[in-house]
Every structure is written in structure tokens, then in C-alpha cells.
């Protein structure tokens, strides 16, 4: 079980705009916390501060009761990070990359080799273990990093955009590894794939402009916005009269109605009666993201401006 909490973390790189503005959050237990938010929102900055790579201007953070901003040495070794722009060193094989990584964590050469073997098996890259990294595919390279942090035995793992650039199958494979890992680790990951956050995360943090705008489980995030339900009509369908909610026109001609649970039920009944095909779901993280961060393009009617 991992306990991570931080309060009022602020950071500006140079005078002027704040990359992080008083961000606070806490999490107790194993699982996956996903950080989402658009480019420049501050996700990487936050992760780098928590991983002790970057000093904040102010704020406090604790990992298992250890203050990590004032005393970074105390927590190094309890955590591992895969930086957003990390690349496996070209002239190393996965075996060598992972072995030396473990040695930096203080493990002897012999033990490190055993640990590397185990982790590569777990992540499914054993067949590439002696291949030079520069010859590996992008997905395999990503998995080398996952194997590295996995082998380190760190309970707290930071993954900054681990699945960017992976094909759908490789992504799926990596997700499976992460789902297995989260049983006994706390994984902090950032992603631009909202579906990924929705599928994997036990807690989702939505950042914008250096602020943590909202955080919680999917259910609790849904409760924070005005419309919890989504009904999607294919192109060419007409809306039932008097539809209540927010109507969004898709680029493909389809129409999405964001509405409350109650209204969704009555709209569905009307549509069934008319024999119109439709899809009805609780709102997705994408819908929540748009409601909180920005209203989507092609919107007809909105709620109050200050309500998500």
C-alpha cells in the first residue's frame, strides 16, 4: 500500500506564467491515478516534482510519511519514473538497460540480471532481450521502460505518456501489464488517450493551466458535471421534440445529446417508439473532459456558463 499526498505545489519556470498553481491531491492504496489535460497543462511538471527531478517553488509532498520535497534522498529508490521523453540508450540491449538500471538502484550485477529476466518475461519482451535497442520497435522500447520500473521493485511508479505512439494492439498489451501491476503498485500515469484513463484508472485528475480542476473516480466526475448521460443518434435522425440537454453535432453528421439520467430515459422511450436507432451510455471521460475544460465545437445549446 502506498500513500502519496501533496499540498499547494506551485512552480514557475521563469518569471510570469505558473506551470503549476497550488496543486493538492492525495491517494492512499494501490491502483492507477491518471493525469489528463491538454498540452502544457502541467502534467509532466507535476510528475517530475513528485519524482524529485525538479524542485517546486513551494508546496509539500509526502510519500509513506516521508517529506519528499525537502528530503528527496529519503524517497529515492522507493519510486521509479519513465520520463516523457526518455529513450532507451541506443547501444544497450533490453537486458543491459534493465540490468544497469537495477544496479543504479543498488542491486548487485548477478541479482540485477535475474531481476531483468523476470521483468522481461512479465512484460513479454524476452525474445528481444539481446537485441540492440536501436533495432527495436517503438512499442518494444516502451515496454523496456515498463520492465525497468517493474524490476526496480518500487511501489510508486510514474509513467509519463507510456502509450503514446503505440499501435492499438501494443497499447492493449501494455494496458494488461499495467492492470496486473496496479494490484500491488501505485501507478501515476499521464495520457492523452481518455479511453485509456477511463479503462485503467481508479482515480482521474484533470489538469488545466497549472491547476487541478477536478479529480475523482469516473462516477464522481460524472456527478460533478451537469449532464451524466449521452444519447447518440446516427446521421440523418431527427431529434425528439422538446429534447432537454446539450446537443452536439458530430463531424460525421451524427448528433449527441448530453442530458440527465431522468431525461435520458424519456428521450430513449420516445426514440424506441419512433423506431430510431440510437446508443445510450453514461457520459464518457471525453464528454466530461469537454464539459470541464472546454465546450466542444458544434454545440447548440449550453447550460449556464459557469456550470460544467
Amino acid at each position: 500500500m502506498v500513500r502519496l499526498s501533496f499540498r499547494n505545489i506551485s512552480k514557475s519556470y521563469s518569471r510570469g506564467r505558473k506551470a503549476l498553481n497550488r496543486v493538492s491531491f492525495s491517494y492512499d492504496g494501490n491502483g492507477i491515478v491518471a493525469l489528463i489535460g491538454r498540452n502544457g497543462a502541467g502534467k509532466t511538471t507535476l510528475i517530475r516534482i513528485l519524482a524529485t527531478e525538479l524542485a517546486p517553488d513551494s508546496g509539500t509532498a509526502e510519500l509513506d510519511g516521508l517529506e519528499l520535497i525537502k528530503h528527496p534522498e529519503a524517497v529515492r529508490g522507493l519510486m521509479s519514473i519513465v520520463p516523457q521523453e526518455a529513450r532507451v540508450v541506443q547501444w544497450l540491449t533490453p537486458m543491459q538497460s534493465i540490468t544497469t538500471y537495477l544496479m543504479y538502484h543498488g542491486v548487485t550485477y548477478g541479482e540485477a540480471k535475474k531481476g531483468a529476466e523476470r521483468a522481461m518475461k512479465e512484460v513479454g519482451i524476452t525474445e528481444y532481450k539481446d537485441m540492440l535497442s536501436r533495432k527495436l520497435s517503438g512499442g518494444t522500447k516502451r515496454k523496456v521502460f515498463v520492465a525497468m520500473v517493474l524490476a526496480s521493485g518500487s511501489r510508486l511508479i510514474f509513467l509519463d505518456e507510456p502509450t503514446t505512439g503505440l499501435d492499438p494492439l501494443s497499447r492493449e498489451e501494455l494496458w494488461n501489464v499495467l492492470v496486473r501491476l496496479k494490484k500491488d503498485h501505485l501507478i501515476f500515469l499521464t495520457t492523452h488517450y481518455l479511453e485509456e484513463a477511463e479503462r485503467l484508472a481508479d482515480r482521474i485528475c484533470l489538469m488545466e493551466n497549472g491547476k487541478l480542476l477536478a479529480s475523482g473516480t469516473m462516477d464522481s466526475l460524472r456527478r460533478k458535471i451537469r449532464y451524466q448521460h449521452s444519447i447518440r443518434l446516427p446521421a440523418g435522425s431527427t431529434l425528439p421534440k422538446g429534447t432537454k440537454g446539450r446537443i452536439v453535432h458530430g463531424a460525421d453528421g451524427s448528433t449527441q445529446i448530453l442530458t440527465s439520467e431522468k431525461d435520458a430515459l424519456s428521450i430513449s422511450k420516445t426514440l424506441v417508439r419512433r423506431g430510431t436507432r440510437f446508443f445510450s451510455n453514461p457520459v464518457s471521460l471525453e464528454d466530461i473532459f469537454y464539459s470541464i475544460v472546454k465546450k466542444p465545437i458544434g454545440e447548440d445549446e449550453g447550460g449556464d456558463e459557469d456550470e460544467w
Binding site: E53, E73, A86, R87, Y101
Partner: peptide, 13 residues
């Protein structure tokens, strides 16, 4: 080019 120092900084080294 590899962000290698970042990996080492977070280790006990």
C-alpha cells in the same frame, strides 16, 4: 538525448 540522468536522479545513486 535519452533523459538518462532523470532515471539516475530518482534512483538512490
Amino acid at each position: 538525448d535519452f533523459k538518462f540522468q532523470d532515471l539516475v536522479v530518482t534512483s538512490p545513486t
